[in-house]
Structures are given as C-alpha cells and as structure tokens.
Simulated scan of single mutants.
Amino acid sequence: MTLLQLQNLYSGYRGVDILKGIHLEVKQGQIVVIIGPNGAGKSTVLKSLFGLATIRAGKVLFQGSDITHLPAEQLVRRGICFVPQTNNVFPSLSVQENLEMGAFTRRDNYASQLERVYELFPPLKEKRRQAAGSLSGGQRQMVAIGRALMVEPQLLLLDEPTAGLSPLFIEQTFALLQDINRLGISILMVEQNAKQALSMADWGYVLSMGENRFEDTGPNLLTNPEVLELFLGG
C-alpha cells in the first residue's frame, strides 16, 4: 500500500523554489532514502511536509488523502513524525521529560510505549533523569527519535540522523533504524552517509538541483555507474 506520495512538488523559501516538480513515494513498511549533493533540496522535501518550507504547487498525499497544507499537529495526529537535523531536543528538560513531550497529542496512557522506547534505547533509561542537553550527540539523537516514536507513528521522517556522529554511533543509528522499521514503521530519510543508507534502503531517490535525477532500489543505485561516479565518490 502506498503511504506517502509527493506529486509534482514545487517548494522553497521566500518565493524561491528549491524543489522543482519532484515526485516521491513511500510504501507501507519501506525504508526510503533521499541522497544528493549539498543544495539539491533533500532537506527541503521533509521541511515542505511540515510547513517549514512553502509549497507553491503540487500535492502531498498520505494514505490517499491530500495533506498538502495541513499544520504539523494534524500531521502528527495522522501518524507522521519529523525529526529535524538540529535543535531536536529540549536541552534543559530531562530525557524522560523530552520523551513525554512527544506524547502531547495522546489522550491515553502512554506508559507502555515509554517502556518500548527505553527497550529500543537502553542508554536513555539509564540517563532518564539527566538533562538532554548534557548528552553526547548520539544520545541526543536517540532522544529525538525516541520522542517521535512516543505517538507510535506510521511514518518517520528523518533529516540527516547520523550527521556529526562518531563512526560507532553511525553504525548504531543505522541498526536502530532497521529495528524501528521491523516494528512496522515506514521511514523516509535524508542522509549524507549515502552508501550505508542505500545499503539498507528498499528504495532510493537521487536529487540534483531540486529535481529527480535517479530512483531505484537501494542496491541498484549502489551499483549504478553514473550514480557511483557523480554522487557516491566512485
């Protein structure tokens, strides 16, 4: 089943289009990765969905319904969560308070989901009373992703989840994302560590200058000679 569709999307900032008619699709249960050079518009794709970039033309469909201009809170209620690259935790709040903030749209008891998040991220349970701002970069990323999981989303949007992390945390983050996906959560991810991301992707998109350049399965993109030469460093 198709979960998310972007149809002929034009979007950008202050009247300037960064995305120029792109299309994109995420099916239920997939990990979909967007790669491309700096300035290609990768992060603008995710920001457009959450109103952080202005959509001038085109449509965004979720489960067949038009969500093009819905506010962020309604998107969260529909099961879509966005984890931005930076400023993605409340630094003065504890780890647990950050996670509880993620459940702001819930009206039920979310204690069992909190425990599931701690099971996915054991270091967070150990540090649950510690201020999130005092954690390492990798642990802050765990808090940000864990907070998004508190609403049990259908689709998780991730902007550069491994940016600035050590090689060890990069490997751990990719492994955790696969664990999350196995829980039935679809993932749409922008990522600079392109080879590692594509190696676990069901489908990948290569953007260039705000337009679709290539799309294929992750393994096929990794062996495409033109993609290798132009976007993956040979």
Results as ranks from 00 to 15, higher is better:
18 I>A: 00
106 R>H: 14
143 V>D: 02
157 L>A: 05
59 K>H: 15
83 V>I: 13
211 E>D: 10
46 L>W: 03
90 F>T: 09
126 E>P: 05
222 L>Y: 05
187 I>Y: 03
37 P>C: 09
164 G>I: 07
61 L>S: 07
33 V>W: 01
64 G>H: 06
161 P>A: 12
20 K>E: 00
181 N>Q: 09
63 Q>I: 05
151 V>C: 10
84 P>W: 10
163 A>V: 13
2 T>S: 07
150 M>K: 05
133 G>N: 11
177 L>Q: 02
206 V>N: 00
106 R>C: 12
205 Y>A: 01
196 Q>Y: 10
215 E>W: 06
109 N>E: 13
157 L>P: 01
68 T>N: 01
131 A>G: 12
77 R>V: 08
29 G>Q: 07
211 E>N: 04
63 Q>Y: 08
164 G>S: 08
18 I>S: 00
71 P>Q: 12
46 L>F: 06
222 L>W: 07
10 Y>E: 02
196 Q>R: 11
228 L>K: 13
120 L>C: 11
90 F>P: 01
163 A>C: 14
117 V>K: 01
116 R>V: 11
179 D>N: 09
67 I>K: 03
199 S>A: 15
23 H>S: 05
127 K>Q: 15
150 M>E: 06
229 E>D: 15
87 N>W: 15
212 N>W: 01
140 R>F: 03
161 P>E: 13
77 R>C: 04
22 I>T: 00
103 A>C: 15
95 V>D: 01
137 G>N: 14
101 M>D: 12
89 V>P: 00
226 E>T: 11
49 L>E: 02
185 I>M: 03
232 L>W: 03
44 T>I: 03
82 F>D: 00
27 K>V: 09
205 Y>L: 03
149 L>H: 05
14 R>S: 12
68 T>Q: 02
153 P>F: 07
203 W>E: 04
156 L>E: 07
29 G>V: 08
81 C>I: 15
7 Q>I: 11
29 G>M: 07
191 E>Q: 14
41 G>F: 00
208 S>C: 14
148 A>P: 05
163 A>L: 13
221 L>F: 06
90 F>N: 06
111 A>R: 12
43 S>T: 09
